[in-house]
Design a protein around this nucleic acid. Structure first.
Length: 233
DNA sequence: TTATAGATTGCCT
DNA sequence: GGCAATCTATAAT
């Protein structure tokens, strides 16, 4: 029996200095467009461990957070995908070239971030469900409108698709259609050399159609994975 | 033109 | 564990 701390994570984790802030970020660089041109299920697995970057925030800082949970959404053959009903004004980014941000507004309150996959003309995307904060956590807390009172509050920043967008200031007006393959973009995705291991696959969360398809991927045991139980298995 | 479901979150018991 | 909040794209009159 392992002794656990807040949120049911091993006490060992909460004893760690937070945040985990790797020097490897100094060598971070974006992946090229071909990285995103394949099947969303393949791209999703490759994205685990990569880093989401927001440049030039209000205070001039840089927000970074590691991708720890994603879901794949296919094209018109996937009933749960926004592309299921064909191309519309809303989902047109999914049908465009790969490596671009598709952002939608849901439940009247929240934005969600996807990256487009498959070659231009074919729909597909990966939903970002949870991140592990690396730098800029105070700004994230400010954007989320919460106070950080110790390690137990860390997952409140970026654990959940709506939360991570709020933490990064991601909106449809600002970021929909942005190129995520260029470090010149305000928002982009980079590789800092981190290599994911122990990738866990589960059914997608929060959907009713095709709910049994195992297209959710996460870093096993990572405390920043979303969901009430916070961890899968 | 009106109705409704939705890739969520936070607060309540 | 249950449920309201709150907006919009899309389906149904």
């Amino acid at each position: 029996m392992v002794e656990t701390g807040p949120a049911g994570h091993p006490l060992e984790f909460w004893m760690m200095p937070q945040p985990r802030n790797p020097e490897s970020l100094s060598t971070i660089r974006p992946m090229d467009r071909s990285f995103y041109a394949g099947d969303p299920r393949h791209v999703a697995r490759k994205l685990l461990g990569k880093v989401l970057v927001r440049e030039a925030t209000t205070t001039g800082g840089r927000l970074t957070a590691r991708i720890v949970e994603v879901e794949a959404y296919l094209g018109e053959e996937d009933p749960a995908a926004h592309a299921a009903a064909g191309r519309t004004l809303r989902n047109s980014v999914l049908f465009g070239p790969p490596g671009h941000a598709y952002i939608y507004f849901i439940y009247g309150n929240h934005y969600c971030l996807n990256v487009s996959c498959e070659p231009e003309g074919e729909a597909g995307g990966v939903l970002f469900r949870a991140l592990e904060p690396l730098t800029g956590t105070e700004e994230m807390a400010q954007a989320r409108g919460i106070e950080l009172d110790g390690p137990k509050d860390w997952p409140k920043l970026t654990s959940g698709p709506g939360r991570l967008c709020e933490a990064f200031g991601i909106t449809r007006a600002r970021d929909n259609g942005s190129d995520l393959t260029s470090a010149k973009s305000s928002l982009w995705i980079g590789d800092d050399g981190y290599r994911a291991r122990d990738i866990v696959t589960t059914p997608r969360i929060g959907i009713t159609k095709a709910a049994d398809m195992p297209f959710r991927y996460l870093l096993g045991g990572n405390p920043f994975v979303s969901g009430r139980k916070m961890r899968a298995k």
